[in-house]
């Protein structure tokens, strides 16, 4: 355990250079059984990240490029009449995989979006009245282009809430970019990767996340943060209880990744920009979401008074 996670992070890091923090967040998200939304410009390595994680974790991987003409059935699957058996046979859609990369989710219609999001939420899909479970573990990485372009459907707040974390990769560091130029072939690197763990191990680790303890002192801090978002005039609406639980769970995963049996405030501080920013709305102040979270962290005392 203590070695596996750094090894995984290192493996992914070999492919995606200079993005250690984002890789760790993504893995924490996976461990916390959440789903990840990556908001970034094209060409920043969103797909690479998803693919690499799947490879290292030994997860079955599918990628769907969302387009405006996609239908829910294209995601979930469809029943087709089979002449030989003269019955309908269900053809599984891409959602039946352990790691699904939903690329450019905001390009498709809200209807299709919500089909995916429902599958994410429930861990199962219902087609023709029949409920089918999705494979376990099930991890969705959705990407979204932050620029509002014509013909896109930005995810509404209520849907954003379904994602445990929202991160953006950003431009690589100068060194990493230089390495890219100088011929580090990430594709080859990716092909060379061996799975570090089996899906069953991952599930065990996911179970362990829930066992990471949080003391009263820590919960106090969490509650102070949540209260602040609800009471400060900076925020149009505060964190919901679901958001608070998500924050705690992500912090647990973070603690587990750092081989701790208990959560410490630093864990919360590490994950809160990814977990809370897309759930918080600023009063029309012009301040962006991440500065909002920074302000939140600065205004709430870590130590109980």
């Amino acid at each position: 355990m203590q070695k596996i996670i750094p090894a995984i992070v290192a493996d992914v890091g070999k492919v995606l250079l200079g993005k250690e923090h984002q890789i760790k967040l993504a893995i924490a998200c996976l461990l916390a059984r959440g789903h990840l939304l990556i908001e970034d410009l094209p060409g920043m390595g969103k797909t690479t990240l998803a693919h690499t994680i799947a490879a290292v974790m030994g997860l079955s991987y599918k990628r769907v490029q969302f387009t405006s003409d996609m239908l829910p059935a294209d995601i979930v699957g469809v029943s087709i009449f089979d002449r030989e058996s003269s019955s309908f046979r269900f053809h599984e859609g891409p959602v039946f995989s352990q790691l699904l990369l939903a690329d450019e989710i905001n390009r498709t219609s809200p209807k299709t979006q919500s089909a995916l999001l429902e599958a994410m939420e429930e861990g199962q899909v219902t087609v023709d009245g029949e409920t089918r479970s999705l494979p376990q573990p099930f991890f969705v990485i959705a990407t979204q282009n932050p620029l509002e372009q014509s013909g896109t459907f930005g995810l509404p707040e209520s849907q954003l809430d379904r994602f445990l974390m929202r991160i953006s990769l950003g431009y690589p560091t100068p060194e990493a970019e230089r390495a890219l130029y100088s011929g580090v072939d990430s594709r080859a690197e990716l092909a060379r990767l061996q799975p570090r763990i089996k899906p069953e191990t991952l599930q065990k680790m996911q179970a362990m996340v829930s066992q990471v303890k949080a003391t009263e002192s820590l919960l106090d801090y969490l509650q102070r943060l949540v209260q602040h978002t609800r009471q400060s005039p900076d925020f149009a609406c505060g964190l919901s209880p679901r958001g608070a639980l998500a924050l705690l769970h992500a912090a647990r995963a973070w603690a587990l990744m750092h081989a701790r049996t208990h959560v410490i405030p630093e864990d919360i501080q590490a994950v809160i920009p990814a977990v809370a920013a897309h759930r918080l709305q600023s009063v029309t102040d012009g301040s962006s979401d991440s500065t909002l979270v920074d302000r939140l962290l600065n205004q709430v005392d870590v130590i109980a008074a």
Partner: peptide, 29 residues
Amino acid sequence: APRPERLYRRFCQRLARAGLPREKGESPR
């Protein structure tokens, strides 16, 4: 506040007197 917090606050106060106050949102580490 629980005792550890009170003790830690005292620690912070002493450092603040020495000119190194803890920022509000600064975690212990």
